[in-house]
């Protein structure tokens, strides 16, 4: 019905859905990548952590599928094992996942075709916003035609999360039969992975300062204020890092 504003190769409406499907599968194929493999390994490590924390297989998989952001998942696991109430737990998880908002905001202009893309399509696509898919999308989507970007991104996200979902389940079942050394190595995988990827994602000095503050304060608050230690670590460490780097920025400019 709508006439394209810019001169484009004519594409009959019947082709449009088929075209979307093609881009969806191209996105799914592009998901076979090194970053996706690293993410899978991190979730395999998480499966071990979840089992040790006393979560059932169904709970582990529900978390993987519904939350789909490993930092939030690890925070929620910690909150559940320390017996935190549902509201403090929600607060801690919400604090850990605020960064998804600016990430989603930055992605929207890339995948939205003004006047054509429906809001519900964007809401579905937004569930796949997590570090791995986002970094890949920001780097590669601009090279694709605008109509293909949304189905490509959804295909990529669905393929990565589907594969990771299955591997997490398999790892959960197998971790019990692993020798303790392999299981121990798997448990260490989560913190090393986060230490590296969090530092790699830090763009400002404030982010790095906040990371160091959190590393130091985490165990301190765990001993001093068990239960709500995660919230205190985030609020105190983050505010401290923000204020310190802000003063430093002002004094230099």
């Amino acid at each position: 019905m709508t006439v394209p504003q810019e001169p484009q190769p004519p594409s009959p409406p019947a082709d449009a859905s088929g075209c979307g499907r093609v881009w969806f599968f191209r996105g799914a194929r592009a998901a076979i990548s090194i970053p996706a493999l690293i993410l899978t390994a991190a979730f395999v490590g998480y499966a071990g952590l979840a089992r040790e924390s006393g979560l059932s297989l169904a709970e582990t998989l529900a978390m993987t599928g519904f939350v789909w952001a490993l930092p939030s998942i690890v925070v929620l696991t910690g909150a559940m094992t320390s017996g935190m109430g549902i509201l403090p737990a929600a607060f801690a998880v919400a604090l850990a996942s605020v960064r998804l908002m600016p990430m989603t905001m930055a992605l929207m202009p890339l995948i939205k075709v003004p006047g054509k893309t429906r809001t519900w399509q964007l809401l579905v696509a937004s569930h796949f916003v997590a570090v791995t898919a986002w970094v890949y999308a920001m780097r590669n989507l601009p090279d694709l035609p605008k109509e293909g970007r949304l189905p490509f991104f959804v295909g990529f996200g669905a393929a990565v999360s589907g594969f990771v979902f299955c591997m997490t389940g398999i790892a959960y079942v197998l971790v019990d039969r692993m020798p303790p050394m392999v299981a121990g190595a798997l448990f260490l995988l989560t913190p090393v992975y986060f230490l590296c990827s969090l530092w790699g994602a830090a763009r400002l000095l404030a982010d790095k300062a906040a990371m160091i503050a959190g590393l130091v304060l985490g165990p301190v608050f765990f001993v001093l204020l068990p239960g709500l230690d995660l919230l205190w670590t985030g609020l105190a460490g983050g505010t401290l890092a923000y204020l310190a780097t802000r003063i430093w920025r002002r004094s230099r400019s």
């Binding site: 040790e52 604090l95 959190g214 985490g218 985030g234």
Partner: peptide, 23 residues
């Protein structure tokens, strides 16, 4: 972002200082 980063960093160091299971 600072608060979020510090929170996740706190989780990391808790996993290393107070691990569970085989570790």
């Amino acid at each position: 972002r600072c608060v979020a980063t510090a929170l996740v960093a706190g989780v990391i160091s808790k996993l290393v200082f107070f691990p569970q299971g085989a570790l």
